[in-house]
Design a protein around this nucleic acid. Structure first.
Lengths: 235, 235
DNA sequence: ACCCGACGGAACGGGTCCGTTTCAACGCTG
DNA sequence: CAGCGTTGAAACGGACCCGTTCCGTCGGGT
């Protein structure tokens, strides 16, 4: 019997509040105010801020991406990057997504929901994309898919959500070409170990000095805020 | 005349509060409570939550990274990745950094401070690293440094701060090798345009279908929360 | 025509936080 | 040893928000 237009007004207000103040500062009173509805209408549908946000964000990515079906890894990648770009290009998403991802580090419920909502529609897309390329013979079957996902999504996410620099024309196709070439490198095959014997560098002009593997130059970073964990307090 | 031990207790408390509740929910009363000091002691040093946080985070990255000086791009990269890994590995940093980066999308002051604190010690490091490689002849002088930074930092940041999956042994050296090879690809040189005439694909088994550049399959993503911007409200 | 349910508004007691003020205690400096 | 300044504690009025309750209204279904 709950009115649908009010429900969706609340949903929209949640997104806008998330973008403007973030999950931490989001309040139900604020959502109701922005939606132009009474607090009662919100509490009648959801019983907590967490439930409200979880519900709203979980049906965001439910809209299945009509995933690519080109004939080549390179073009599949370009389409995927373009989808990600299109999503994160919008002001709301580019502010909400990093905020929720940061909050997910504290709140397991949010982490799990994002996992289901985003990654099930993104990790799976990436896996599908890689599987197709393997079937085509474009990629080795032993490719490290975890690392591949990092390489595919990492740079664009960094640029769109963190660096927030303008993306020049032609950047996405170029990034797709670069990533495709990288994934096809023989360096992507060994899933874990075996980097020890005779590193097969492609074409380095310099023979490259010994690689100590533990070069951390000591005193690099004295963690962050741990020096006085709370000890020298007078009290 | 202000007691230094109290000042640093407050600083540590700010970091812990940032990690636990984020910038949005951080309160001066909470900081003072956690530091075991009076609210007065905090207000005597900083006059607002923003000033407090800005001051604390700005002298975090001040500790100059003793940047690499290996003889090769590959090993320079590995050291850089290891530094980033070491920093973001810590619970505090891996929670605070994404939170502040998300907040920076809303608060220009935080954005600017992070720009100075982090990027001036990270973007510059990356630029230096790239400049050295160019001087050595390992990289083309026309390399697109912006894209290069995305490729260097993006994957590891995604893995450490977003995906938060365990990093297997040997991942960092492998990622460094992969990234170095990628940077040396001829695809990195054209800074912007010129992807149109005869795409120089490296070695694709399939000739790859036409690349429409505008393949967005229509109705991919109906933005995010914009459908009812607040219109259908009764009120 | 009627009734039932969702609606907005207002108020409830209780909580946290703001930024400021006052005060007594303490420790350093001179 | 005397004085000055920082300290923690407490309280201030004001603001916001919580989650709940009550009430008058309005609209759709029977």
């Amino acid at each position: 019997m709950l009115r649908g237009d009010i429900t969706s007004a609340i949903r929209a207000a949640v997104m806008q509040e998330l973008a403007e103040v973030g999950y931490g500062r989001l309040s139900i009173e604020g959502v109701a105010r922005r939606a132009g509805v009474g607090k009662t209408a919100v509490y009648r549908r959801w019983n907590s801020k967490l439930a409200l946000v979880l519900d709203v964000v979980s049906d965001l990515a439910v809209r299945k991406m009509p995933l690519p079906d080109t004939g080549s890894l390179r073009d599949d990648l370009e389409i995927l990057l373009q989808i990600i770009n299109q999503v994160l290009k919008h002001r709301l998403a580019s502010q909400v997504v990093p905020d929720l991802l940061a909050e997910a580090a504290r709140n397991p419920q949010i982490a799990e929901t994002l996992q289901q909502a985003l990654r099930a529609n993104q990790r799976n897309v990436a896996d599908l994309l890689l599987g197709r390329a393997v079937a085509r013979g474009e990629l080795s079957p032993q490719i490290d898919t975890e690392a591949a996902v990092d390489l595919i999504i990492g740079p664009l996410y960094w640029r769109l959500a963190i660096s927030r620099t303008r993306i020049p024309q032609g950047y996405l196709p170029r990034l797709a070409a670069i990533t495709a070439a990288t994934l096809q490198s023989e360096l992507m095959s060994p899933p874990a170990v075996a980097p020890r014997p005779a590193a097969p560098r492609p074409a380095g002009p310099a023979p490259a000095a010994p690689r100590p593997t533990e070069p951390a130059p000591a005193a690099v970073v004295p963690p962050v805020g741990t020096p006085p964990p709370g000890a020298p307090v007078t009290a």
